[in-house]
Design a protein around this nucleic acid. Structure first.
Lengths: 349, 349
DNA sequence: TTTAATTGTGCAAACGTTTGTACATTGATT
DNA sequence: AATCAATGTACAAACGTTTGCACAATTAAA
């Protein structure tokens, strides 16, 4: 049952030529006559030849595999990025290995080790929330393995990166709330050592400044928003309960996480607080769940698939330009505000 | 910047021994003296030696990579299975390549080709909805590459498989509805050429039979439930609207898909129909979204992560027993009914 | 003390490609 | 007719491991 593998040599033997000629013929080398090429192709077909990419990888020193590191694969955000990456690299003959860091520094390190060990041709990663040291990433760079960061990046690493313009997304979201007449907007902020949450906070602040709304530090609630869905929903509930305790309700909540927003909405609804009439909501990330709840959650879409596309593109570019005059750049994707019921104070539309 | 790779030979040179000894020392071969081993390990450490797994793969004829095919990665179901697979194979030094078939026959074929080309040591797959020919899977078997199927399987292929007992899940769900006093239960069924939907239908029928409820073919609505979330939600809405048109409302809906259930719920809620009082709902798959809506969607959890675990385990077993006396088996996982508000007619609890 | 088993290493051939260099043939240019 | 470029192919050395076999040195058994 186990068939003997047919190699390039078998083809050579059949045609009474050398393996090298066969190799070149298969790869369409210009110095091989078309006659020979045709013959080789025919025999290859006949024998059902399958090139051994491992051998090729060994010889060429490249594996045609690229590694992707996601903090967690069960968020639609990352699933979508992955899909975007695959879309473009497959067309170039690359394969993708996906690793999850579970947002842990140690696993992230381990992932990188594993990927380097199997000689990936590049690594596309989003950094784990725990990570504050970046030596493992630097090692990748030093080994000459292309490294592309997406979404959660670190500026000190001088590498290609693609992120969404979270400042703008946040700015749009808050401006929208202001336009709906909100004046007391609470912000569920994420931990500020992570770039995206910093930017979201900045956008929140600037949007209000520009509309003459003074910033009240009391309204900014910083929490670790990176946990399992369930836990972040819980967190949202807790924050909502705290707000209720404090008495003075805000007229809007802009959450840096969809799940925290949904948790808070649950609590408010249970207490009979009208959404959006009394409190309007905007989340962040456009997780699908937001479209199922009632009212639908207004949120910021980050064009995640395109993000994956771009990351892959950056990788391909980097590979092509070799180490030559390659200078890292950061691609900024503009996010889009998705308006649903949760923020429409002025009636529908 | 680009450091020269340090090989087994460099270590050998340093210690004035041969590469073969180093190789054996590294792999802890019994015939190598502990002194030598220690020395080799030290030097390896010192030189920061990274084994070249490609070379090893070439020599040994195995890549330590296993391929997983999922119909689509952006369903929490599959994300979770993948996670389960990884959990176990990583500990054995394997890496995972994930491919998406997008539920298309042609892509599934292409995925398999790609995986075979890079010489994966095994393939773990769930078959695409389009697939009705299985030659590509047979080819895998014939090449001696271990093949494990999960969830969506095909009986004619004689391979290791792990599925959930969909019959039981469905049976539990419908029994639960009957216990809640439902007598006219509509079933949103999936296409019957797919094993899981067949089983769910059978469970639906048997549960009622055993409780003396006659089966009304009118209540069984067969639809293709495998599409993007959005589209299936739409489908659910359509089916709900049709039910409304027909006049006579059922007192429960058991949907083979969470999303279809949620779509239908939306419509009913919009029409002011009380859930679960007038119509109770049970979905299938325990997609996270179901916990966010109101009332929460009662559903069937399939222990997806464990499913991944099992699939991986089957793979490992199969590799170990070699082609010897290995005889394929099917593992059946018992699903669990998750009761939420959408089905509790008898008040809470 | 001879013989046999055990222990520790070395040799060299794989694994299946790719690729630099060399060689022969052909056709074109002087 | 001599020179040169272009064309088509072969040779052989990589790539970094692993592994069967051989062989020496040591230890145990007789």
């Amino acid at each position: 049952m186990k068939k003997k593998k047919v190699t390039i040599r078998d083809i050579a033997k059949e045609l009474d030529i050398t393996a090298s000629t066969v190799s070149r013929a298969l790869r369409n080398h210009p110095r091989i006559s078309t006659a020979t090429k045709q013959a080789v192709w025919d025999v290859a077909e006949k024998l059902n030849y399958q090139p051994n990419s491992i051998a090729a990888a060994l010889r060429k020193g490249k594996s045609n595999i690229i590694g992707a590191i996601v903090p967690t694969s069960d968020r639609s955000f990352f699933a979508s990025v992955i899909r975007g990456i695959e879309e473009v690299i497959r067309t170039e003959g690359y394969n993708l290995i996906i690793c999850q860091s579970d947002d842990q520094y140690s696993k992230e390190q381990a992932n990188i080790e594993a990927l380097l060990k199997i000689q990936v041709d590049g690594i596309i990663a989003s950094v784990a929330k725990e990570t504050i040291k970046f030596d493992h990433f630097r090692k990748v760079k030093e080994l000459g393995v292309p490294l592309i960061l997406y979404d959660r990046v670190n500026e000190s690493l001088d590498v290609n990166a693609v992120v969404t313009n979270d400042y703008l997304g946040s700015y749009k979201a808050v401006t929208h709330l202001i336009e709906q007449g909100c004046k007391r907007i609470v912000h569920f902020a994420g931990k500020q050592h992570i770039n995206i949450y910093q930017d979201r906070l900045k956008g929140y602040i600037d949007a209000q400044r520009e509309h003459g709304i003074p910033i009240d530090q009391e309204l900014i609630i910083e929490e670790d928003l990176i946990y399992s869905m369930k836990r972040v929903v819980e967190l949202g509930r807790d924050m909502a309960n705290n707000l209720l305790q404090m008495g003075k309700l805000p007229d809007a909540i802009f959450s840096a996480s969809d799940f925290a927003a949904m948790g808070a909405m649950q609590v408010f609804k249970e207490k009979g607080i009208k959404i959006p009439e009394q409190v309007a909501f905007v989340g962040y990330s456009n997780d699908v769940s937001g479209s199922f709840i009632e009212p639908g959650l207004t949120t910021v879409d980050q064009h995640t698939k395109r993000m994956g596309n771009m990351a892959a593109q950056l990788f391909l570019e980097q590979v092509k330009t070799k180490t030559k005059d390659f200078t890292p750049r950061k691609t900024l994707l503009n996010p889009e505000l998705i308006v649903r019921g949760s923020s429409l104070k002025n009636g529908c539309d």
